[in-house]
Amino acid sequence: MMDAPPRSRDGARRVILITGLSGAGMTTALKSLEDLGHEAIDNLPLALMPPLVDQIEPHGRPLAITIDSRTRDFSADALVAHVKALQAREDIDARLLFVDCDPDVLQRRFTETRRRHPLAIDRPVSDGISREQQIVAPLRDQADLVIDTSILTIHELRRFLAAEFAEPGESGLFVFVTSFAFRRGLPREADLVFDVRFLDNPHWDPELRPLTGLDAAVQTVILQDPDFDGFLDRLTGLLGPLLPRYNREGKSYLTVAVGCSGGRHRSVFVAERLASWLSGLNYRVGLAHRDLPAAS
C-alpha cells in the first residue's frame, strides 16, 4: 500500500529520509534509491544529519538516508523535528519515507532468517516488533510516503520507488499492470481491479492447460471469444479518460490488476494487451504476472 507524497519543488535538493520497522525493507529501499542515482547513507546518527545536508552540492546527487531504531541517538520526536526543519527550507525537498509491514509477516521473516530483532536481543521477536511499533508510530503519522511491504516482493518494492522517485524528465504517471488469481486473493496494492473470469477459459482444454496467456495457442482461444473485443474496447475506453485525470491530480503510480481463476491464462493475456496499449499511449508501464510460475 502506498500513500502519495506531495510533488517535488523545482530546483530543490532532494533528501529522502527512510525509517520504519526493522525487517520491513528499509535496506532494500535504500539500495533501490542508490540504484536510482541517490547517494545512500545507512543508519546515520541524528546529530550528524544537519551538517551532512548542508554539504550537499546544489546540483549534486540527491541524498537517501536511513534513520531508525538502530541509531544510537534515535528519537521519533527528534526525527520529526528535523524533517519539519528541512521541509521549511526552500532549497531542500525533504521527504520522510516510512516502510511498514504487518507484525505477523515480520515475525515470519525474522524466524526464517534466524535474525534477532534489534530491540529484543534477549527477548522474543514479537516483543521487539511491538515495542518498535510504539516507538515509530509518530513517524508513520508524519510520513509523506508510506509503503506497506507485507505482500510485496523485493522487485515490486523497487518498482514502487522507481516510479515515485524517477529522475527529472521521467515524471508523470507510472502504470503498473499485473495479472493475478482470485483464488490467491486480490493484490493488496491494486488501485483498479478487473475481473476477466467471464471469458472462455482455456484451462478446460487439456492441451492448453499447461500453457499460459503468453502462448499463441491460448491467445487464439481468448481472441475467439465473441465478447473479448468488446470488453477490451470498453476497458480501454474507461481507462483512456481516467489516466490523464490521475496524472493531473499528481498521482504518480497507478496499479491496474486483472484477475481470473488461476492467474495463468485469461488474466495474463489481457494484462499483456493492456500494457501494450498503455505503452502505445507513451505512459511509463510496468508489467508482472503475480501467480504465473517463473519457469513459464
Rank of each mutant, 00 (worst) to 15 (best):
D3E: 08
D3H: 09
A4D: 11
R9W: 02
R9D: 03
D10I: 10
D10F: 14
A12Y: 05
V15P: 00
T19C: 12
G20C: 12
A24L: 01
A29E: 02
L33M: 13
G37D: 13
A40H: 07
L46P: 10
L46Y: 10
A47G: 12
P51T: 00
P51G: 03
P51C: 03
L52G: 00
I56K: 11
I56N: 04
E57F: 02
E57M: 06
P58L: 11
G60H: 08
G60V: 08
R61T: 12
P62N: 12
A64C: 10
A64G: 12
T66S: 15
T66L: 04
I67G: 00
D68R: 08
R70S: 11
R70Y: 10
T71R: 04
S75C: 10
S75K: 06
A76N: 05
A78E: 07
A81G: 07
L86C: 02
L86Y: 01
E90Q: 14
D91K: 07
A94T: 03
L96Q: 05
L97Q: 01
F98W: 13
F98D: 09
C101D: 03
V105C: 06
V105L: 06
R108P: 08
R109I: 07
R109W: 02
R109Y: 04
D122N: 13
D122W: 03
D122K: 10
R123A: 15
S126I: 08
I135M: 15
P138Q: 10
A143M: 12
D144S: 05
I147G: 01
T149C: 08
I151V: 11
L152C: 11
I154M: 09
A163L: 06
E170C: 09
E170W: 10
S171N: 14
V177I: 07
T178P: 04
R184H: 15
R184V: 08
R184W: 11
R184D: 15
L186V: 13
L186Y: 13
L186A: 12
R188G: 13
L192V: 12
V193K: 06
R197A: 15
R197N: 14
F198L: 05
N201K: 07
P202L: 13
D205H: 14
E207H: 11
E207W: 02
L208A: 07
P210C: 04
P210V: 01
T212Q: 04
T212H: 11
G213Y: 02
L214P: 08
D215S: 08
A216W: 06
A217Y: 09
Q219C: 03
Q219I: 02
T220P: 03
L223E: 15
Q224M: 10
P226Q: 12
D229P: 07
D229N: 14
F231Q: 12
R234H: 13
G237M: 03
G237F: 02
L239W: 02
G240F: 10
K251R: 15
T255K: 01
A257W: 00
G259L: 07
S261M: 07
G262F: 03
R266P: 09
S267P: 05
A271S: 15
A275T: 01
S276N: 11
N282K: 10
Y283M: 02
Y283S: 01
V285Y: 00
G286F: 07
A288K: 05
D291L: 05
L292D: 09
L292R: 06
A294S: 14
